[in-house]
């Protein structure tokens, strides 16, 4: 992977495991990706691919126990976040890196007015008076399209889409350099999805914020991302620029993902799913974790763990099919 100094975020060999009574859940395994300032990367994968765990790992919000970062580094702005103390990490959370959560219905505190919930993050990270923080909160609400008169209302008085706007306002209140959006539109109606995405895109461009967009929707990737990282069983199997990846997918899993989208032009009767199921993270297949579902699997796929191989400028694949040429 490129070890570029201008990267805002550089994640290398990150592994996060959960140690529970039944065994060890390998949620994230040897994960690598990087992000430049202002860039948006789409983290794409099925449910259980480790997308949210990766995000929480960056925020140092993995419940421990049972979760533990067992290996790797998360270099943000020249500092390894995994080496920061809890107090140092608190100063990063909410101000440098902030997060928008998946379910707006449950991610706001029901007992506080939305205005106070935005003002809270401002008060934490900036030297302002309570009145200034409140004013800032109202400005943020205005930015996300919520009228000032509703600032004192409580979360239950808003619809899902409106609540997600509040979530966005909280996340962007301190102008973070990195925004992690964990499936921010999954819980919303399709029409509201578009509005919320548009809003995020606009605000992100306004402040030149980098963004990690976690999603399983390739349509959202096409609309909002610059780069894509395809995740499978806790690691990135392919990463490239959006155009490159959409036009020239290499990894059999990525190709399978694209094939599983029905083409509206053709009169298709059957969906083309990837055969098999996502492996159990407590019992991952040996070698390449995708090999039991792969049409191109060779005998060595079950023995050798593939490395990241560059197949094109900025286009990396983790598959033995491409490794001979790379090594």
């Amino acid at each position: 992977m490129s070890k570029n100094n201008e990267n805002l975020l550089n994640i290398e060999n990150l592994s996060i495991h959960f140690f529970i009574e039944e065994g060890t859940v390998a949620a994230v395994n040897d994960l690598n990706f990087s992000l430049k300032p202002g860039e948006t990367i789409g983290l794409v994968g099925e449910t259980g691919a480790g997308k949210t765990t990766t995000a929480l790992g960056i925020m140092s919000l993995i419940q421990s126990p049972p979760g533990l970062v067992v290996d790797g580094s998360i270099i943000y702005d020249g500092r390894n976040l995994l080496e920061l103390s809890e107090a140092e990490m608190r100063a990063v959370r909410g101000s440098q890196i902030s997060m928008i959560f998946q379910d707006p219905m449950t991610s706001l505190n029901p007992v506080f007015p939305i205005r106070d919930q935005i003002a809270e993050v401002v008060m934490l990270h900036e030297k302002v008076t309570a009145a200034q923080a409140i004013q800032r909160a109202e400005e943020m609400l205005d930015k996300v399209g919520i009228r000032k008169e509703r600032a004192k209302d409580f979360p239950h008085q808003f619809s899902g889409g409106m609540r997600q706007r509040v979530g966005i306002a909280i996340a962007l209140a301190c102008n973070p350099k990195l925004l992690i959006a964990d499936e921010p539109t999954t819980a919303l109606d399709v029409t509201i999805q578009a509005q919320v995405l548009e809003l995020m895109k606009g605000l992100k461009e306004e402040n030149n914020t980098s963004m990690i967009m976690i999603t399983h929707d390739l349509g959202i990737v096409a609309e909002i991302c610059d780069k894509v990282a395809i995740m499978y069983a806790g690691s990135v199997v392919e990463t490239a620029d959006k155009k490159e990846l959409f036009n020239n997918p290499k990894h059999p899993y990525t190709i399978g993902l694209f094939n599983s989208i029905p083409d509206i032009e053709k009169d298709e009767e059957k969906l083309k799913p990837i055969k098999g199921l996502m492996p159990d993270p407590m019992n991952l297949p040996s070698g390449c974790s995708f090999h039991p579902r792969c049409d191109h699997a060779k005998p060595e796929c079950s023995q050798k763990v593939p490395k990241h191989t560059q197949v094109n400028d900025g286009h990396y694949v983790r598959c033995l099919l491409f490794e001979e040429g790379g090594e």
Partner: peptide
């Protein structure tokens, strides 16, 4: 364990405030 507690932590709030306020 609820989501809004995770939100409060993601804001960079102190654990004591997270527990006693949120």
């Amino acid at each position: 364990r609820s989501d809004y507690i995770r939100t409060a932590r993601a804001k960079g709030q102190k654990e004591s405030v997270v527990i006693f306020k949120h």
